[in-house]
Design a protein around this nucleic acid. Structure first.
Length: 510
RNA sequence: GGUCCGUUCGUCUAGUCCGGUCAGGACGCCAGGUUUUCAUCCUGGUAACACGGGUUCGAAUCCCGUACGGACUACCA
């Protein structure tokens, strides 16, 4: 069985930072291609010059690099089908626009934007919707209603014009979507879309079809917002006499509360990022947070995104990129939109964090410590993260869980004091201090052994002693195994903290 | 308004094509256990087929309708 080459593309507009919905679309394209041994192309669709944002393209490229989504061809890689930036392909679109004009599938329209606006308002006043279609095109200012001479004369005078698609009448367009199945639309509800703008640039529709054809794209996997334009696109392929690629329209990512498309606002309000990387808007100066900057691991981010709308049909939830490419299949993509859940995203990060080596985690934690003014030894930090990594979701939470390894507690949690600093605590801690000062081999196992023996001998309650001890060492009733803590901070610091605790907490009478 | 798409626990979802298990898993939440504390971990629990008809011995699954939600409806993508 001969199969055509699998080639897919992700084609963002450089109008700002990439939304996580866009990252997911790119991810599914990537996984689809890699699963089938195909190629993945990055194309930049910058045909709207008014919306161009400096830095957006670089942002997009950086985001994918961080995520581990790699392109085979495209704007940074080059390739045999370039250029991959649409603004550099202007003459190509011009040429194909003319082809459509010549074949009668398109026509020149000289209506000014103002004239069309007025018409829209008029229609609206009568509670109707203005559509530039077969019904009205005969009465408007376009080449369909003029002689050849009139048209050439207008063109010669540089009259602004657009090229519109002549939408056929009374046709049922039957389309197939890999996710939704067969979809039918009557062309009478469609309009004569602009294909080529008066500024000399094509619209998305023309550029997209031309490029997908020329770049030999086999599958178009894009967001659901494009489903309404699918009939136009199918008709365009037909008008050119080209074989259309296969289409798959992905469901949207929804906001966590209520309904609607996930937006930056939701992220700000609910406290999670909607962009992969932090973004500094060059115009407004506004800064948006990003997953990378919020401490997500790229593996966790990708894993979380992959499972939002797709599932393997098994109970596996943790996937490396490699495992994802092996398991991915477009027909296991769901039809309905997914609400993004920040809590589950954090859980994914936790899963990846606990899998990481102490060496790697220490490498991430040390800069944070340095920022706080602590210059701890690498080995010490490695031991610390090893003890606390089970209890955090993010590297940024390490400090809260481990500050007592680096600083002697200044204060003692009043509630804990009330609960655990009893009448005989002072006496017991004094004796413990004496006992510990005599221990020569200060390691966790040995300390546990001698302390338990001492407890036994003195007939002191384990709970009472250990809690008071923890209160003195940590400042509150939290943290890892206490003997691990004191072994790490060392004998001198342990005795020092006992001394200090005894002094601060004093004897309690009750 | 019109067109198209969608609808299973609070959330992500399995199951739907090829009707027939107490509708399964995960996150969250709750309870219990383990632990010197907290967390981890273990055990258990909570909780859903949008609604109404129809077809059928039997419907989450097939058909029709309704409701609700979403996308689109620019010389933006």
């Amino acid at each position: 069985m001969s199969q055509k080459n699998i080639r897919v593309r992700f084609a963002p507009s450089p109008t700002g930072p990439l939304h996580i919905g866009g990252v997911r679309t790119a991810l599914y394209n990537y996984l689809f291609a890699k699963h089938l041994g195909g190629k993945f192309i990055l194309r930049i669709e910058d045909t709207d010059q008014t919306r161009f944002v400096p830095g957006a393209q670089e942002y997009i490229v950086d985001s994918f690099r961080w995520c581990g989504i790699e392109f085979d061809e495209g704007v940074t890689k080059g390739g045999p089908f370039g250029p991959y930036i649409q603004s550099e392909r202007q003459e190509i679109y011009q040429q194909y626009s003319e082809q459509l004009l010549n074949s009668g599938h398109a026509y020149y329209a000289f209506d000014t934007p103002e004239a069309l606006d007025d018409l829209r308002k008029e229609f609206e006043a009568e509670k109707k919707t203005f559509t530039y279609n077969a019904e009205v095109r005969g009465k408007l200012h376009n080449s369909l209603n003029m002689s050849k001479e009139e048209v050439t004369s207008l063109l010669k005078k540089d009259t602004p014009y657009v090229v519109r698609f002549a939408m056929p009448e009374d046709r049922i367009v039957v389309m197939n979507d890999l996710i939704r199945g067969q979809v039918e639309v009557n062309t009478n509800v469609l309009d004569d879309k602009v294909l080529f703008k008066s500024d000399g640039m094509p619209t998305y529709h023309l550029a997209n079809i031309v490029d997908d054809h020329l770049m030999e794209i086999s599958h178009v996997i894009r967001g659901e917002e494009w489903l309404p334009s699918l009939p136009l696109h199918v008709l365009l392929y037909e008008a050119f006499g080209w074989e259309a690629p296969e289409f798959a329209h992905l469901p949207l990512l929804l906001k966590p509360e209520g309904n609607g498309k996930l937006s930056k606002r939701d992220g700000d309000r609910l406290g999670f990022p909607v962009f992969p990387l932090a973004w500094n808007d060059p115009k407004s100066g506004e800064v948006s947070r990003g997953y990378r900057d919020d401490g997500y691991f790229p593996e966790a981010f990708i894993n979380m995104l992959a499972l939002l709308g797709w599932n393997p049909g098994t109970e596996q939830e943790l996937f490396s990129m490699q495992e994802l490419t092996e398991a991915f299949s477009i027909d296991r993509v769901g039809k309905s939109g997914s609400k993004f859940d920040p809590a589950k995203a954090a859980w994914f990060n936790h899963q990846y964090l606990i899998q990481k080596s102490n060496v790697e985690l220490a490498g991430l934690f040390i800069p944070i410590l340095q920022q706080k003014g602590f210059l701890a030894e690498t080995e010490f930090v490695e031991n610390v993260v090893g003890l606390v990594k089970e209890r955090v979701n993010f590297v940024s939470e390490f400090w809260d869980q481990s500050n007592f390894f680096f600083i002697t507690p200044e204060t003692f949690d009043p509630l804990a004091v009330k609960k655990r600093w009893k009448a005989d605590s002072y006496q017991q801690m004094s004796e413990l201090k004496t006992m510990l000062s005599g221990v020569s081999d200060f390691n966790a196992a040995r300390l546990e052994e001698v302390t338990k023996a001492w407890l036994e001998e003195k007939q002191y309650g384990m709970g009472a002693v250990m809690n008071a001890f923890r209160l003195i060492i940590v400042g509150e009733l939290k943290g890892p195994h206490l003997f691990d803590i004191i072994a790490l901070i060392g004998q001198e610091e342990t005795l020092n903290r006992l001394e200090r605790g005894l002094h601060e907490l004093g004897e309690k009478k009750d």
